[in-house]
């Protein structure tokens, strides 16, 4: 991708470790994410990809190490994590839309209650976002009336409504039927082109090849390999990487 990447560091992860009871899931992850960068995290299942992503907005509690988001050390006990989370938008594999609210209500909820903006302004912003993801006519539909692809796009709009600086995607298309994956990736591609800082856990090779600036290959809790998509896909250096690529490319 040809775009200006500002060198402002949005997130810095220093020697992150995470344990689930006895299991050492993250074994010392360190990396930096700069503004405008699209970072893809790939790797075999159980390698720690989702855990790593969720540690960065503390949906999982880090075991040890430091995570600094926009200059704020979120691993410190004094941090207001709710404020930090308003700067990071998150899109989930299972969408997690609020089923008792319509699409536009889903989108409006956080801006009104957390950013404290007026209902009118939130509705305007929400409708603009729905237009951006191509779902204006579904504004008053409930999630169970929408297809998976439509739900995920509403979820993206909901995250964007908070005007975050960074967007996290946790396998956003893994629960979608093949026909709907395209519409969601289109939205994500557009966001990348507009310069949004994105961290994406995904298996979508096509999207990663096109849109990602950097790929992290996470396996067994460590970053096996790191590089541009071209480097990783064409010239992997580590055996683990080759094994993993071999498996998914054979599909």
């Amino acid at each position: 991708m040809n775009k200006e990447i500002n060198s402002e560091v949005m997130i810095e992860v220093i020697d992150l470790h995470k344990y689930f009871k006895e299991l050492h899931v993250l074994k010392g992850i360190s990396t930096k994410i700069t503004r405008g960068e699209v970072v893809a995290i790939m790797g075999p299942s159980g390698g720690g990809k989702s855990t790593f992503l969720r540690c960065m907005n503390r949906l999982e509690e880090p075991g040890s190490g430091q995570i600094i988001v926009e200059g704020v050390d979120i691993t410190s006990p004094y941090v207001d994590i709710n404020k930090v989370r308003t700067e990071i938008g998150m899109v989930f594999q299972l969408f997690n839309l609020f089923p008792h609210l319509t699409a536009i209500e889903n989108i409006k909820m956080a801006p009104i209650n957390v950013r404290k903006i007026s209902d009118k302004e939130a509705t305007e912003r929400g409708m603009a976002l729905l237009e951006k993801v191509g779902l204006v006519d579904k504004a008053h539909s409930y999630p169970d009336q929408l297809s998976g692809g439509q739900q995920q796009r509403v979820a993206i709009a909901r995250a964007l409504a908070m005007q975050p600086q960074i967007m996290f995607f946790d396998e956003p298309t893994s629960a979608l039927d093949p026909e709907m994956i395209g519409e969601v990736l289109d939205v994500m591609r557009a966001m990348a082109e507009e310069g949004m800082t994105m961290v994406v856990v995904s298996h979508e090779m096509g999207f990663i090849n096109e849109a990602a600036d950097r790929v992290l290959l996470l396996a067994d809790g460590v970053i096996e390999e790191e590089g541009t998509p071209t480097q990783i896909f064409k010239n992997p250096t580590q055996q683990r990487t080759k094994d993993f690529l071999g498996k998914i490319l054979s599909l």
Binding site: M90, H100, A110, A155, A159
Partner: peptide, 26 residues
């Protein structure tokens, strides 16, 4: 579903708001 809580917290809502606006209505 726990994902509801995660989505609400990821949006920046505190536990009270999450309970009041997302969990209890459902």
């Amino acid at each position: 579903h726990h994902g509801q809580i995660e989505a609400a917290r990821a949006l920046g809502m505190n536990p009270v708001q999450t309970m009041r606006l997302v969990i209890l209505p459902q």
